[in-house]
Design a protein around this nucleic acid. Sequence first.
RNA 1: GGAGGAGUGGCCGAGUGGUCGAAGGCGGCGGUCUUGAAAACCGCAGACGUGCAAGCGUCCGGGGGUUCGAAUCCCUCCUCCUCCGCCA
Length: 427
Amino acid sequence: MLDIKLIRDSPDLVRTTLQRRNLDPAKAGLDELIALDAAWRADQQRVNELRAERNAASSEIKKLSGDDRQAAIARVKALKDELASIEAGLAERSEQRDRLLRAMPNLLADDVPGGHSDEDNAEISRWGEPRQLGFEPRDHVELGQLTDTIDFERGAKVAGAAFYYFKREAVLLEQALLAYAARELMPRGYIPIATPDLAKDEILDGIGFAPRGPETQVYSVENSDLSLVGTAEITVGGYHGGEILEAESLPLRYLGYSHCFRTEAGAHGKESRGLYRVHQFTKAEMFVLCTPESSIEHHEEIREIEESLLKGLALPYRVVNVCSGDLGAPAFKKYDIEAWMPGRGRYGEVTSCSNCTDYQARRLNIRYRPEAKASPRIVHMLNGTAIAVSRTLLAIYENYQREDASIEIPEVLRPLMGGIAQIPSRG
RNA sequence: GGAGGAGUGGCCGAGUGGUCGAAGGCGGCGGUCUUGAAAACCGCAGACGUGCAAGCGUCCGGGGGUUCGAAUCCCUCCUCCUCCGCCA
């Protein structure tokens, strides 16, 4: 969430941000929030005064006895009743205020392009040339069938549409990709961390996911406050919740491994074929906690790492700067990296990275102490995909396919697959 | 699953109704001493809210209650530990 002080001091900045995000400030309740906050502060002040009075009167009581004591107790009781009535209103106001405050999206970086959908994302670079295959490329669904390594039909039979089985070399390929991420990132200071696949709703909410409700993308567990995580961003972000970190420990770089579960409500349509949009996949996620001064720099570093991972796999890609309308509430700025996907004949998102500045950290109350004795400050948090297995595997299948439907294994992954150099066609 | 015990500041740990935001220790910071460092000694130090500030308020796992007053009493939830059972 935003700092309430920012909203008090710079309401116009917040108003402009909402407009850039194609949100109506009135509908978002900005003015309502400002009014509510002012009223809340007035109430708070009044309550403080009454409490001070009550505390003072109360501490006198122990010195009194007899009728004086009884009279004093009666006075304090009256004060208490008055206080209770204001406190009730205060609690309600504070709740409303928090609800509106938490609903405000993050500020935007100056260079976030305006726009309404992913079509308005701004391409900023390209790397690699799509291979000249010299034959009509198959898509990964067909390749998965012909190699007997991806089984969507039985996935649907057992778990429903958009579930799948990996078999044979695909299993090794998944493990190789996950190992590849660790091998590349550990030298860069990333700490591998395998996280729970479920998290409490309050953590989901802290990261900016709506755990329940009609719009949710999240599977929740009945009769509990747990949900299946959509990304390790949730569990790694929650890892330091409520803590005050030492300045020397920053930046903290994590490589979080988890399964990811997404309902993809309302997303059934064009992209529903194959691995591109599935209900479950495995992912290695980069997560960085750093000082506010360094987050922009770290964002660029994460983007650079994501590019280097794709370069290592020799997958052609382009980088886009995600436009304001396509940006989630916690993100200050986000890059998508889109690999070439021959089966679709275009680029498709395989990784992305977001600078969420202090938005999530404030909700999760993650701070650091700049130096001894100094007051704590909110950290900045960033996340980025190292490897999303499903989409990366999709891109490898389609880019490395041969005419006979066998699939070459990218050079860097072969040592991680016991030397396997190709997936044979079994068609 | 059953039975007990415990959750206090960065850490350890006192504290069973008022003067406790909380002794003491460790760690931290500043200083004295020293060529420098260590040791020793002296001192300073919680978080949050509000306020220009002084201050005031809130916070002793979470929530609720009793009381004029709760770290302290009651209820409830969570977490951890020990023992038993069960499973691996």
